[in-house]
Design a binder for these strands. Structure first.
Length: 468
RNA sequence: UCCGACUUAGCUCAGUCGGUAGAGCAGGCGGCUGUUAACCGCCGGGUCGCUGGUUCGAGUCCAGCAGUCGGAGCCA
């Protein structure tokens, strides 16, 4: 018998002719027996949302001894003929001629992935087995689809992917707690004469940390390659325990020479639309599942986003709208405050009803590297706020004028010598430039309608949690 | 870190006025059926998060601790 190994996606897509013999390999999701002398075994292999139905006749020699004992989680190899089944719930099925059991489930009663609905909270406790579920399988395919779309989008537009460092020796942005990277023996630290830790004895000869952003590094490449981006892991040691934060997450940071804030906002909008279009066209099956079981509006929300223009408003206009709203906010609204979650939610969920780009924030609440506007009190910053998620993108036009940059560094109490190479970019052929950071997991949340960020990354790291 | 809620079978939950525990799903066995979230019947399965207190008696009331979830802050 000649047969070729195929993924379930290939077989179900019609790429395999009815009547041909194929071999599929995967894991059992359910088994149902019929007195007509056959069993229906549904298999998944991750290649698509759907399972394939193997119809196993009781004439197989291992039918009573093995096939009738198959349950959820068992791994099998099935060879058989592809049979078209028009009118049934699946386009085709596999008439099994041979079933080989590769791995049994030790104890079906305590197998954590029972043939039933599990809560996402429970599945986090069994993160090594949860990719076998419908939900995490769908998340995994959508995550992959989005990651591929990120690279495709930039590649097609002449951007270069720059691998900025994971380990950094400077608290560059002065933003957020950082994870320390050290090879020192913590139970026997080398000391300086003054009694402090002698960092010169450490691996890098000075304190080192995990990156909180690749932006400052990628700016150096924007000043040579024009259009660049980073896409990699990012680390924040903040003790934040929310459905939108991780200690280790992935971020996409494009940086474009000669771009203004307005062009930056246009890029962010075009980019997000491209990503969601990719999900809509490439992952119908998974999105249909999310619409059915997770969030009825998730497909409609993406379709509307792709078809409409983002609302743009200045920070000052946003404050004015909030003041006119008549809402009772916990935090009072007035020009100069940083927008609170409740304010962002009202803007994007109630006032606009779709993503909104807020631009030109007060300089005192934003980072030193953001370009000072002519009014001398705002900077060319932008946040893209999404309904249900909050801030999905944060970005700005960067300060390209050395004298202004130095003034901002001083105002914020930073030490300009620490930024010597960043300042060099302004000394040697400086140009206006702009970029932003997109939270990858938050993008997945928006696409799928899933509520908790821990459910859209394979192995979530949060305060107190680094299992698996 | 702060505020709030929750913690009972493998999972999701109910448990009245304080009187030593129940359902659905999952699992096992049987029945039925080209089934497809199958259906029907039977069975096994519990240190009621931990520690202490009140009480003749605590899953239930009180205190502390732990864990989980939600919200806030920080941000992506």
């Amino acid at each position: 018998m000649s047969s070729s190994i195929r993924s379930i996606a290939e077989v179900l897509s019609g790429a395999v002719e009815a009547g041909s013999t194929v071999t599929v390999r995967g894991w059992v999701r359910t088994r149902r027996d019929s007195k007509a002398g056959l069993s229906f075994v549904h298999l998944h292999d991750g290649s698509c949302f759907a399972t394939i139905q193997a119809v196993v006749p009781n004439s197989l020699s291992n039918y009573p001894t093995e096939v009738l004992k198959l349950g959820a989680g068992c791994s099998v190899i099935v060879t058989g003929e592809v049979i078209a089944t028009p009118g049934r719930e699946q386009p085709c099925e596999l008439r099994a001629a041979e079933v080989t059991v590769v791995g049994w489930v030790d104890d079906p009663e305590t197998y954590p992935m029972a043939k039933k609905a599990h809560t996402l909270e429970y599945l986090r406790e069994v993160a090594h087995l949860r990719p076998r579920t419908n939900t995490l399988g769908a998340v995994t395919r959508v995550r992959h689809c989005l990651a591929q779309a990120v690279h495709r989008y930039f590649h097609e537009r002449g951007f270069f992917w720059v691998h900025t460092p994971i380990i950094t020796a400077a608290d560059a942005e002065g933003a957020g707690e950082m994870f320390r990277v050290s090879t020192l023996d913590t139970s026997n630290l080398p000391r300086t004469r003054e009694g402090g830790v002698d960092h010169s004895k450490d691996f890098f000869g000075k304190p080192a940390f995990l990156t909180v952003s690749g932006q400052l590094n990628v700016e150096t490449y924007a000043m040579a390659m024009s259009k660049v981006y980073t896409f990699g892991p990012t680390f924040r040691a903040e003790n934040s325990n929310t459905s939108r934060h991780l200690a280790e997450f992935w971020m996409i940071e494009p940086e474009v020479a000669f771009n203004t804030l307005r062009e930056n906002a246009a890029l962010a909008e075009d980019f997000l639309k491209y990503l969601f279009k990719a999900v809509l066209t490439e992952r119908h099956d998974d999105m249909a599942f999310f619409a059915d079981r997770v969030d009825p509006d998730c497909v409609g929300r993406l379709e509307r986003l792709v078809a409409s223009n983002f609302e743009q408003m200045t920070y000052s206009d946003a404050i004015a709208a909030l003041e006119r709203s008549g809402e009772k906010f916990e935090f009072a609204v007035k020009w100069g405050i940083d927008l609170q979650s409740e304010h962002e939610r009202w803007l994007t969920e109630k006032h606009v009803g779709r993503p909104v780009v807020v631009m030109n924030y007060p300089k005192d609440i934003k980072a030193f590297y953001m370009r000072l506007n002519d009014d001398d009190r705002t900077v060319a910053a932008m946040d893209v706020l999404a309904p249900g998620i909050g801030e999905i993108i944060g970005g700005s036009q960067r300060e390209e004028r050395l004298d202004v940059l130095d003034r901002r560094i001083a105002e914020m109490g930073l030490v300009k010598e620490h930024y010597w190479w960043y300042r060099d970019l302004r000394r040697y052929g400086t140009v206006p430039h702009a970029g932003f950071g997109l939270g990858f997991e938050r993008t997945i949340l928006y696409a799928t309608g899933i509520q908790n960020i821990r459910d859209v990354i394979p192995f979530p790291r949060t305060p107190g949690h680094a299992e698996f």
